[in-house]
Design a protein around this nucleic acid. Structure first.
Lengths: 209, 209
DNA sequence: TGTAAAATGTTGCAAATGCAACAAATATAA
DNA sequence: TTATATTTGTTGCATTTGCAACATTTTACA
């Protein structure tokens, strides 16, 4: 994952943050970040820590939109934050820097040659998030629970470059991510093991095909 | 939807295209655009017409990734085009402009003051595509076919600002987009009509709640 | 360290859904 | 216009899945 300030030195990062009127806030664990954010058009950059973005519908069903960690962004550019049903919960102590979107093209910023690096990073981040969403859509469009699991494992395996990998989610969270019933998912994983397609040891998966 | 060249006048658009070494190609209907594209990192801009991006898995199941029309972009920034299983079929005669990603930050481009408008448009386009993908994920994570249909209708209704709207897909394509069996979807839409939740007339839908 | 909370594993059952196989209605193109 | 292809509507049936309910294990934290 690209970092928003990648390839910019510390001194220039500080300068850039000043020009962007960036506002840095520290949060404890399990706090709803968006509750005290009232800006309309903002980019939130996770400096350290991690958050989970969830969406609750009118019936109270929760779905994970995204899991983000250090260097990644969220906000009006990436999710429908305006919507009050979205919440952003810190999974650990987390530092977040808020930038108003309009500041990204303010007058002062052009004078600096690191600006173009910043813009390229931003574009790269957005396109990486698009790829992540494409992956999830690819999984969710599979008809059966089994195919969803296998597609997820395939993507994990490819990104790690190995048939052995550790999934970054708990099984409860995975069921949520795949949008299937947790018990049905466990049932299917058991079958996959019995039929010799995979081996598991906790969250460590081995593909046997 | 934002247009990539929004708020740039015709003369400057021409200049910008020249600086970006843009390459414009015309396609007939039902042509696979990607078959003769060999660039690795490109942005494809649809000037006129429309295309359908689809993904085929190893079993030959086709899923729609996206439907795009005039002003919208696709390519390495927005989808996993490198993958040969992705195809891009024109739905009508279509003109597409290809831009290599690296040109977006070439030396000559900074000298022009319309450049920042172009970058803002690009960022806006990417974030709009993210929103579209978030919408689709929101739909796909619904557990039942009924909830998927209703979520889709809700989003359509909101974007049109009316309880009466015409869906932009055929029912066959809609089933594909929702990733449900077409006959099961028809069955569910019939029930929704019988139970008085909606009225339909071809692709024109009226929400009665 | 002990205790409450959260995560994981398992199963029966009812409901939802994919699939197949049609007929009928529309749309497309020669 | 006519023939052909595509889309739409409908139904029976087998399979998959969500749901509920529970036991067991692991984790978190006071």
């Amino acid at each position: 994952m690209t970092n928003l300030f990648e390839n910019i030195n510390d001194k220039n990062i500080e300068k850039l943050k000043r020009i962007l009127k960036a506002n840095t806030i520290n949060y404890r664990k399990n706090v709803n970040v968006l509750s005290n954010v009232n800006q309309d058009n903002f980019i939130a950059l996770i400096d350290t820590g991690s958050v989970q973005l969830t969406f609750s519908d009118y019936e109270g069903n929760k779905t994970i939109i995204d899991e983000l960690s250090s260097g990644e962004i969220f906000g009006s550019l990436t999710s429908y934050i305006k919507n009050e049903e979205v919440s952003c919960i810190t999974k650990e102590p987390t530092q977040i820097t808020f930038i108003e979107y309009t500041e990204i093209t303010n007058d002062e910023i052009f004078k600096n040659d690191f600006y173009i690096i910043f813009i390229k990073n931003l574009i790269k981040l957005l396109s990486e998030q698009l790829e992540a969403k494409n992956n999830r859509i690819e999984i969710l469009t599979k008809k059966t629970t089994r195919d969803k699991i296998l597609e997820y494992f395939k993507i994990q395996s490819q990104s790690k470059g190995s048939k052995i990998f550790t999934i970054p989610l708990s099984y409860t969270e995975l069921a949520n991510y795949l949008s299937v019933d947790r018990s049905a998912m466990t049932r299917e994983i058991s079958s996959l093991k019995k039929e010799g397609f995979i081996k598991t040891n906790g969250r460590r998966i081995t593909l046997l095909y």
